[in-house]
């Protein structure tokens, strides 16, 4: 069970959260203008990196807010979490041992 730093509530147990897939996928403003390939990618194509992953979580059983996180999928350590609408922080390399403080 991970510890996840909710940007609103601070570090909380994973049980309170729900993973919501890749972050920063904006719904097209005009879906009808999307080609079949573009729409197919929006619906289904997701990053699956072995390494740093920008993903969404929701503090489902806490404050209820969606937020984003950078997590290293090779260690499951988070680097940071940030609110929706904020840009992906520039982070390179891997998550530090022991995880987010």
């Amino acid at each position: 069970m991970l510890v996840i730093h909710c940007p609103y509530c601070g570090p909380r147990p994973e049980l309170e959260f729900r993973h919501c897939g890749q972050a920063h996928i904006a719904r097209p403003l005009d879906p009808s203008a999307q080609t079949a390939d573009e729409w197919g990618e929006y619906l289904y194509l997701r990053e699956n990196p072995k390494g740093m992953h920008a993903e969404r979580w929701r503090h489902m059983h806490g404050c209820g807010r969606f937020f984003n996180a950078l997590r290293d999928t090779t260690t499951d350590f988070f680097v940071t979490t940030y609110k929706c609408g904020e840009p992906r922080p520039a982070v390179s390399g891997t998550a530090p041992a022991g995880g987010q403080r």
């Binding site: 729900r18 919501c20 904006a26 719904r27 969404r56 929701r58 489902m60 209820g64 807010r65 969606f66 929706c84 609408g85």
Partner: peptide, 12 residues
């Protein structure tokens, strides 16, 4: 959950 998702992340 789906409603909150659209509201919070697509149409804030």
């Amino acid at each position: 959950h789906m409603m909150e998702d659209y509201l919070q992340t697509e149409w804030p």
